[in-house]
Nucleic acid binder design. Structure first.
Length: 410
RNA sequence: CGGGGUGUAGCGCAGCCUGGUAGCGCGCAUCGUUCGGGACGAUGAGGCCCGCGGUUCAAAUCCGCGCACCCCGACCA
């Protein structure tokens, strides 16, 4: 992508209604634009990061047997009739009507629909286990949207639902999902903690994936030695208490909930009447789990952790960067053009082909935040080639033009 | 939902108290000089002053009612 064509504009000043580091940065750098409280448009740069996040999630969900499908944003009131959640989730549901007065909600989550779909698919223990997921925009009527992309009224979420023949099989899958979630967040460059939490309107308990950071809204109590961690909602501790599982000490931190998984038992299946015949010929309800992961929230979280506010500089983790490589030519020259032609097909490349001052190009490049920067200038050519900067290490080397691919592939 | 604050050019703001030609910075356009860390000069374009109603010869400015946004709470997969 030539930067002169890119649909974006960086800003020197942040809109005064930006309420968080992630919103300030993402707007300033031209990744998102705010439509209203809790609703952000993804501009090309932001969407590139989102797509990479989504693809990592897809890969990992597929790796444990998940199958992608896409359910509906429009949910007729009737699908809630057996679960009673039309009333229970009253405060969160955006309700609308068709031209005939039929009542609908904009989907905040999809247990009702997925179980209804499963009724048509699962009739024997031979049909189990099954796991389906979708990546979709969800709508929740937040009383107070805030923290930029971290708490929106409209946000992209991955939600997976699994169906099992018995608790034992469910538990195996549930534990597997924890591992794969940690792997996913690791690929985003995020170190998260698994935290015990309440189940809300879903189940008795749940597990949250919390990114410990002062910017988070949640309060987490965790052990400094072992894996013990609980959400404030259920924690009976205070800072300095002894860990119940080892001789460690309980610490407190804020956290951003980037994922949340719930054991649903057979509750929804029973309510909606989804059953199958076991290998002993008996009717049984499948044991279910649901597995949420906030896609747009992850975008915001990566920024909260990685953005250097003092230097106005971002370095995206390699796997989610909007572009792999940023070519910056400081003087209009054919060498940079041909380098772009060469690398373009092999990498995701952003090429700053504009005629601007070096300072302005560098300042904007710091905002875009590509992990690798290639500088083509009179100075670099005199020194023998292209300057290659690994932004995460801040290391710079001059590489002869013909060796560029070799270096980049390392 | 309760308390507080703010709405003026694409963005950041001043002007409002004390009514009288709508301003500054960034960004944008043209020209020239610059050219390895958001350069400089000159010229120029760009406005439903949040909306509706009221007071007044005259309203961005005063009064009333809405709406939106932000902050602090309450709530929250």
């Amino acid at each position: 992508m030539k930067q002169s064509h890119l649909f974006y504009k960086t800003r020197k000043e942040v809109p005064s209604d930006a309420d968080s580091i992630n919103a300030s940065y993402l707007i300033r750098a031209g990744f998102v634009e705010k439509q209203m409280a809790g609703a952000y448009a993804l501009l090309p740069l932001g969407l590139r990061v989102i797509k990479r996040i989504q693809n990592i999630v897809r890969q990992e969900m597929d790796s444990i047997g998940g199958q992608e499908l896409l359910m509906n944003v429009l949910q007729p009131k009737e699908i809630y009739s057996e679960t009673g959640r039309w009333e229970k989730m009253e405060e969160i549901l955006y309700k609308i009507q068709t031209q005939n007065g039929k009542e609908l909600a904009l989907g905040p989550t999809h247990e009702e629909q997925v179980v209804t779909l499963a009724k048509g698919v699962i009739s024997s223990y031979r049909d189990l286990p099954k796991a389906v997921y979708q990546i979709q925009t969800k709508f929740r009527k937040e009383a107070r949207a805030k923290s930029g992309l971290l708490r929106g009224r409209e946000f992209i979420m991955k939600d997976m639902y699994s169906f099992h023949d018995g608790e034992e099989d469910f538990e195996k899958f549930y534990e597997l999902s924890k591992k794969v979630y940690l792997k996913i967040f690791g690929r985003f460059g995020l170190e998260v903690k698994i935290v015990e939490a309440s189940g809300g309107v879903f189940s008795e308990f749940s597990h949250e994936f919390q990114l410990l950071t002062p910017q988070g809204e949640d309060e987490i109590y965790y052990c400094n030695k072992c894996d013990f961690a609980q959400n404030k909602e259920i924690a009976q501790f205070k800072a300095g208490d002894k860990c119940p599982n080892c001789d460690g000490e309980i610490l407190v931190s804020n956290g951003i909930e980037v994922g949340n998984i719930f054991p649903l038992s057979t509750t929804f299946a029973e309510q909606i009447g989804c059953k199958y015949i076991t290998n002993e010929g008996k009717e049984q309800y499948p044991v279910m789990g649901c597995y949420g992961l906030g896609i747009t929230r992850c975008l915001g979280s990566v920024v909260e952790i990685m953005y250097d506010n003092a230097k106005n500089r971002m370095v995206w983790p390699k796997e989610v960067a909007p572009f792999d490589i940023h070519i910056i030519s400081l003087n209009k020259n054919d060498i940079a053009d041909s380098l772009y032609e060469r690398l373009g097909p092999k990498f995701e490349v952003l090429y700053d082909d504009r005629e601007l001052s070096a300072g302005q190009k560098f300042a904007e490049a710091d905002l875009v935040g590509c992990p690798i920067r290639l500088i083509v200038s009179g100075k670099s050519l005199e020194a023998g080639g292209i300057e290659v900067i690994d932004m995460s290490k801040n290391s710079s080397t001059i590489v002869p033009i013909e060796n560029i691919e070799k270096i980049l592939n390392e």
